[in-house]
């Protein structure tokens, strides 16, 4: 190889791999928010039993390094045992059954202040005429960047 070729070869290689390392780093948010029910006042907890006709305040805690933007709650039946929760506790599930008038509670909220820590507090009214049985309570929360964290809890609605 001629010297010029060697030099040009080296130059291109250096350029190529320099381009890789010289990163004009903008501070990127690579952290997901956290969402937990592992504290005393959290409600409901895994395998919690809730009564029809009652009104409850659901509580969970969330944090984020940048700012929390929106959260949602989704209470739906698990009569077909389609999923299980991620709380690490096995709850006794009732027999599989066909829903007649299952309870469905879906709501989402926006946090205008975009706090880095927030305690979710949601009033949930359970009507008298809904099917009793196994339910799921799923929370999710997003941060400014669009990271989302979810958690879900197996619960029971009883008479």
């Amino acid at each position: 190889m001629k010297l010029t070729q060697k030099i040009s070869f080296l130059a291109i290689t250096l350029f190529l791999f320099n381009a890789c390392s010289s990163d004009s780093d903008i501070d990127k948010d690579l952290e997901k928010p956290t969402l937990t029910i592992q504290f005393d006042e959290a409600f409901p907890k895994a395998c919690e039993q809730l009564q029809r006709g009652q009104t409850y305040t659901f509580k969970a805690k969330a944090t984020d390094n940048v700012g929390l933007v929106a959260y949602s709650i989704d209470v739906h039946h698990n009569f077909d045992h389609h999923t299980h929760d991620d709380q690490g506790v096995e709850c006794d599930l009732g027999p599989i059954k066909t829903p007649v008038n299952p309870f469905l509670f879906k709501k989402n909220f926006t946090l205008e202040q975009q706090p880095t820590a927030y305690e979710l507090s949601i009033t949930v009214e359970i009507p008298n005429n809904i099917d009793v049985g196994d339910y799921h309570c799923a929370y999710s929360i997003t941060d400014q960047t669009g990271w989302q964290t979810q958690t879900s809890i197996d619960i029971k609605i009883i008479e």
Partner: peptide, 11 residues
């Protein structure tokens, strides 16, 4: 693009 928002009815 994943936004920070939830779809209104579907959560």
């Amino acid at each position: 693009n994943p936004t920070a928002n939830y779809n209104n009815t579907e959560n």
